[in-house]
Amino acid sequence: MKKYFLLIIFISCVSCTIPYDAETRLVFETKLVDSNDNSLEGIDVEITVSNGSGFGSSSELLSFGKTNSNGELRLIFPSPEFDRGYDLSVNSPYSDNENYVPLEINNIGIENFNDYKLTIPKIYRLTYDESVQVYLEFNSINNSNKITNVFIDGINSPYSSSFLDEEETFYTYNFFAKKNQTIQINYTVKNISGQLQNVSQELVINEENISQIINY
C-alpha cells in the first residue's frame, strides 16, 4: 500500500504543472543595444519559469516578445507561485543568436521586482568576434559571509550565474565582455550579523577569455 501511495505522489510530482498567482501581474522592461549603443529592433526575448533542472522539475515559457524600433521591450505576465521554489530567467532564443553570443539572466525571484516591475535599463548584445568570455568564481573565505547583488559595469552580455553549493557560498558568474576595455565588478557581501559591505574592483579585458577567482 505504501508503495502505491509513494508511486502516486511520485507521478503527481513529475506531471505537475506550474501554478500561477493570477492576481499578481509582473512587468519586465529593458532595452537591447549593440556594443556601440545602437538600438536593436526585432530581437526575440523570452521569460521562462522553472524550479530547477533535476528530475521532477517543471519549466515553461511564461512570456515572449520582440524589441521595438527603439530596442525597447515590455513583457507583462502572471506571476508564478514563487513560494513553491520557482524562479525566472530571461533569454534570447538561439535561433536569433547566429551572430550574437547567448544571452541569459537567471535566478530571478520576486525579490528582484520593485512594485511588481523589473527594469534592466540596458542589455548589450555582443558578437563572438568582438567579445571574450569571462568566468568569475566568488569563493567565500569565511563561510558566514554571503554574496549578493553582483553587477558588472561595462559593455557585457550576461550568460549565467548560480551557486554551486547548498550553503550558497560558492557563486559563479559567467558573461561575455567586449574586448579591450576595463570593467568594474561590483558586489555586496553580507556578514553573519547582517551588515552589508559593497565591494568594487576593476578587471582589464584584453583579447583572451578570462577565468578568475574572487575571494570574499
Binding site: E60, L62, S63, F64, R74, I76, F77, P78
Partner: peptide
C-alpha cells in the same frame, strides 16, 4: 496579445 497578457 501574449506580450501584453502572458503566454497562455
Amino acid at each position: 496579445d501574449k506580450q501584453l497578457i502572458g503566454n497562455y
